[in-house]
């Protein structure tokens, strides 16, 4: 019988990533509901001490020099035999650059169903449901948590980091990995993008622009406003991918998380990959022509007008006073 709730721990450059604690929080809830043990899977090179504050009944630590940096090949080679020998009731990975490389691979190999973009679990008596968010946050899907085994990729938002941190050091079992034979993916180096640019995670005022801005020439208006407010311009993924702004200005899942006093979002729809990184802002003001844009669910104030009109009006207003 499959047993155990597994959590794949993510870490980067010597520190456990927040998503790992979020997954542990979710996993602990599942474990309690099902009476299962929660088991954290940690892979790395001489990083056993990283397991210290993981809230788990047990940590299985896989140690090998080739696990120093993340490689999907190396992780799969190490995890697959373990999962084969100890099939889990549920395996939780992050809906992230690490988790998404591993969850689907293991699932297909062993024929387990997958639940993607899982937000949280809901329980009614003995029944456990998954809740996932699809279509850029516009649709919520609920369903029965598949049995006897399921692979899950979890998005942040519903569970708190603190809930995944334990006060007592968990029981750690070290697995000495003898060799990793089939790693065809090797790190060359880490690149910090545009180091030296402003650090948007520290700014107090951010003027964020999205695809709704439509014309890169109008970026000047956003820059003017940011200048007047003593802040910086940042953007959503499409804006960065179009080369309108450098990668250092990306807000979201693949960019930076921000916590300004005021976050002005011009022409940003409010996809989960964006909003997950702005929830620590004191005040969010969203300017969007679509009254149904999800961003209005995160914003304190909303303006259902054209982004350029509002930018222009604000700039005029500030210049005149």
């Amino acid at each position: 019988m499959p047993s155990g709730i597994y959590v794949l721990i993510e870490h980067q450059q010597g520190a456990v990533e927040d998503i790992s604690y979020v997954m542990l929080a979710a996993g602990n809830m599942l474990a309690k509901q099902t009476g299962e043990e929660i088991i954290a899977l940690l892979l790395g090179n001489k990083i056993k001490e990283m397991a210290g504050d993981l809230k788990a009944d047990q940590v299985i630590y896989f140690d090998h020099p080739d696990l120093e940096d993340f490689s999907p090949d190396a992780y799969l080679e190490v995890l697959a035999p373990y999962i084969e020998a100890h099939p889990p009731k549920a395996f939780i990975g992050g809906h992230t650059s690490v988790g998404m490389d591993i969850v689907c691979g293991l699932a297909s190999r062993f024929g387990f169903p997958i639940i993607s973009q899982c937000q949280k679990f809901k329980t009614e008596g003995e029944t456990i449901r998954f809740v996932s968010q699809i279509c850029g946050g516009k649709i919520i899907v609920e369903g029965l948590l598949p049995e006897p085994s399921v692979m899950i990729s979890l998005v942040p938002g519903s569970y708190k980091v603190e809930q995944g941190k334990g006060d007592v050091s968990p029981d750690i079992e070290t697995v000495e990995v003898a060799e990793i034979l089939n790693n065809r993916m090797k790190l060359i180096e880490y690149v910090e993008l545009d180091a030296g640019d402003v650090d948007i995670s520290k700014e107090e005022v951010l003027v964020a622009v999205g695809r709704g801005l439509q014309n890169p020439n109008d970026l000047e208006l956003a820059q003017e406003l940011a200048g007047a407010l003593g802040g910086s311009v940042c953007g959503s993924r499409p804006v960065i991918d179009q080369g309108w702004l450098p990668a250092s200005r990306l807000v979201g899942k693949s960019g930076k998380s921000v916590s300004p006093k005021v976050y002005l979002a011009f022409g940003i729809s409010g996809a989960p990959e964006h909003t997950q990184a702005i929830t620590e802002s004191d005040i969010i003001i969203a300017i969007n022509t679509d009254p149904n844009a999800p961003i209005f669910e995160f914003a304190k104030y909303g303006v259902e007008e054209d982004a350029v009109d509002i930018l222009t009006a604000l700039n005029d207003h500030i210049t005149q006073n």
Binding site: Q12, K186, E192, L193, A247, L250, S254
Partner: peptide, 11 residues
Amino acid sequence: FPGGLVAKMKV
């Protein structure tokens, strides 16, 4: 990777 970190890799 999250936070603007990029790994250059050979595959």
